[in-house]
Nucleic acid binder design. Structure first.
Length: 374
DNA sequence: CGGCATACG
DNA sequence: CGTA
DNA sequence: GCCG
């Protein structure tokens, strides 16, 4: 929704890759680019998209070599996030003003500004190892460690991986899951689920989050958050009922529940449910069969969908926690920690007492953490 | 030189 | 460890 | 890799 680009939600795309034009701002604006992603907007299209595209290759390479949580990776993720949130960079002096962009990154940026590209990025893109690891991690359930291990054992392609016969689910739906969804696709899938949820328990409020909410034109998965406004507790037990119904209708294939917090094949013991009564979030990661419509979809497509159920009292936290971006979430948790809170999608907590602060709306979260609403 | 988000199965 |  |  372009009319909300000034708000936190849709302008929160601090680590994405979106198409670009170029918008220049006065140099004075550079001093004002805030430290953390939670304190700055992230307009689309990104004015520095070409530069970001070059650096993103190096970031991916670091992810593949060290994992996403490694310092080598985080330094690039935070720097790129800063560049995404900055006005058009025309010279190194402007780049030097960006927080989290240090000497090493400046050399790369300088090279880009003078030559229009970064040699190391080009080499990386073309490297056989990069391509192999990148491809192998595209399989659901295969991360950096596994990919590196496979590579060390001589595995180089999806075909070789498939022959190993580990990750049966990953390969079964692999091709469809590579296909990005348009915003219309996301809305269509959401509507299928809404209809079934309404049969399970009417009155739910549902909203699409993730990349869709950040304004991305294409998404690789769908994040659908569901709650029952003003009816605390009504959401309890809804997720498993919904999953059973979707399975029964064939909208989720038999093997399509990849992960679920409340849907064990053997039923969850009741005492466990009460022990974890403060877990206000239920979630399921599924494969959704998006039925053909004969027009835009000639056949059924299998799509990755995350269904999240939240209590009404923590709806705001759930919205914030499931909108992203990844960098936004990291920065937000840092701010919370520094101010004596603990933030997670299931709620905002006082670090000392452990008491949960009610966060009915997204703004409640920002207000409590004293983060301006942009 | 320590820290870098956090939770869950 | 992998995924969100 | 960058910051405090």
């Amino acid at each position: 929704p372009q009319d909300r680009v000034h708000l936190h939600g849709p302008s929160r795309d601090h680590d994405s890759r979106s198409p670009s034009d170029s918008i220049s701002l006065p140099p004075s604006a550079f001093a004002a680019v805030p430290t953390l992603s939670v304190y700055r907007k992230s307009p689309r299209p990104c004015p520095n998209q070409a530069l970001v595209d070059e650096l993103a290759v190096l970031r991916s390479w670091r992810f593949l070599q060290h994992g996403t949580g490694a310092p080598e990776s985080i330094s690039y993720a935070t720097a790129i996030s800063a560049i995404i949130g900055a006005p058009k960079i025309d010279n190194v002096e402007q780049a030097r003003k960006l927080h989290k962009v240090g000497p090493k990154l400046l050399i790369k940026i300088d090279e880009f500004l003078t030559t229009g590209k970064i040699a190391e990025s080009e080499e990386t893109r073309n490297s056989a190892k990069f391509k192999a690891l990148d491809e192998m991690t595209s399989v659901y359930g295969v991360g950096q460690k596994t990919a590196v291990e496979l590579y060390e054992n001589g595995i180089r392609s999806l075909e070789q991986m498939r022959a190993l016969d580990r990750w049966p689910i990953g390969f079964k739906y692999q091709e469809d899951m590579q296909i990005k969804m348009s915003r219309a696709d996301c809305e269509s899938v959401a509507n299928f689920i809404r209809i079934q949820l309404d049969r399970v328990e009417p009155g739910a409020h549902t909203v699409l989050l993730g990349g869709y909410r950040r304004g991305k034109t294409h998404s690789s998965d769908i994040d659908l958050l569901c709650t029952y406004p003003h009816e605390e507790g009504k959401e309890k037990g809804i997720l498993s009922r919904l999953l059973y119904r979707l399975l029964a209708k064939g909208l989720i294939p038999e093997d399509g529940v990849l992960w679920s917090s409340s849907f064990a094949s053997h039923n969850v013991a009741p005492e466990r449910a009460s022990t974890r009564s403060f877990d206000s979030l239920d979630k399921a990661f599924v494969i959704f069969r998006h039925p053909a419509n004969g027009i835009t979809r000639k056949r059924d497509y299998f799509r990755r969908v995350d269904i999240i159920i939240t209590a009404w009292s923590t709806f705001g936290s759930a919205v914030v926690g499931w909108t992203g971006s990844t960098q936004f979430e990291r920065d937000l948790r840092q701010v919370a920690e520094k101010k004596g809170y603990k933030f997670e999608a299931g709620g905002l907590f006082d670090k000392q007492t452990g008491v949960r602060i009610p966060t009915l709306t997204e703004k409640d979260v920002f207000r409590a953490l004293d983060i301006p609403w942009l």
